[in-house]
Every structure is written in structure tokens, then in C-alpha cells.
Design a protein around this nucleic acid. Structure first.
Lengths: 80, 80
DNA sequence: ACTATTTTACCGCTTTAGCAGTAAAAAATC
DNA sequence: GATTTTTTACTGCTAAAGCGGTAAAATAGT
């Protein structure tokens, strides 16, 4: 499970790599500047769609994994 | 980028596999029952920590991927 | 078929996420 | 080192997320 601080670090790193200021990233994402500040500070209670907008601009994908899904994937590969 | 409906389906599938009712999952996750209903309905604006609690109970992980992170990973593997 | 459980869908309430504005500290640019 | 930009950190405001309660519809279990 991703930690908020990890999320914060990933976003900051990608923002820096893209040479964007927080204000600029906020503007491009269509969210308020406070949100970027909050996210990079590790705030837990941001909303999923808000996070999505920011990640989208930075070209970061969210993926879900689980033992259950890994199993289903394996069964498909073994072409049962 | 994960769609809300995809998220909804993944959660429902895992909940069913665990033979949990929404009420029970809510209780185990420490969130209100309304949230599970909202998530499975594809609501966009749930909070990250709320989602985390639910995913944690269902043993689902969130992972972030990006071209930038893939590159860094490759460079490490090539032990430059 | 009957019964119990679950799901869907509302309600009012409280808390707070997200917003823009502002300003001082910090960092970058010249 | 002076100037510009960025970051940190407040503010008050508004919209809505999350909450438990309730009830009817849908489904499951006997």
C-alpha cells in the first residue's frame, strides 16, 4: 500500500523533472495551488479525482495489484 | 490511469471473493457503509485515505508507474 | 413460498477538502 | 547582492465527503 509520503515524493520528483512550479502544475491540472502543497506535504485526505488530475499531467499511472488478480493473470497465461 | 468504474469492479470482485457484505467490509475497514456503496457505484470524489483503508482490508495494493520511473529502474538494472 | 440478508437509495448532520488571497521565508536567476 | 520566482503557511469561505439512520427493492438461503 502506497504511503502518503511516497506519493508526495513521487509527485515532487516528477514535477521537478518537468520543470514545473507548484502553481503551474496546479493550473495545468485544473486544481487549486493549495492541493499541490498539501499532496507534497503528505496529506492523507486528498480526493481521488484531484489526485488523478495531477498524476495525469505528470504522466503517472495508478495500478492495482493483489494476490487474487495475480492468480487470475497466471491462469490466463497458462491458457487453461 | 485507473477509471473509477474499474476501481469499483475490482473492489466488488474482491469483496465478493472474500464473501463480505458491504456493511461488513465497511465495518472492517473502519469507514461508513455509504462509502462502500459510493465506491462501487463509481464515485470519483472519494478520499485517498478512505480508499486505502478499504483496499487494505481486501489486500489490494496501489502502485504508481511512469516512463520516468521505468527509466530509472532500467538504468539500475543495467548497473551503469 | 417464506424468511433473512443484502443492496440500493434516500435523509439531515458535521467535518473538512478544495478554493483564492495574502505574505513572509527560501531558492533561483541575474 | 539585488531581483524575481518559488515555496511555505496562514486566512475565511463554500461545497461536499463521510457519517448513521431508515426503508424499500433485490437477492440468497431455507
Amino acid at each position: 500500500m502506497i504511503q502518503s509520503q511516497e506519493l508526495a515524493d513521487v509527485i515532487r520528483m516528477h514535477r521537478k523533472a518537468a520543470k514545473l512550479s507548484r502553481d503551474k502544475l496546479a493550473e495545468m491540472s485544473g486544481v487549486g495551488k493549495t492541493v499541490i502543497y498539501d499532496i507534497e506535504k503528505g496529506k492523507e485526505t486528498i480526493q481521488l479525482d484531484t489526485l488523478r488530475k495531477v498524476l495525469s499531467v505528470l504522466n503517472i499511472k495508478i495500478e492495482l495489484t493483489s494476490p487474487l488478480m495475480d492468480n487470475l493473470q497466471n491462469m490466463e497465461n497458462e491458457k487453461g
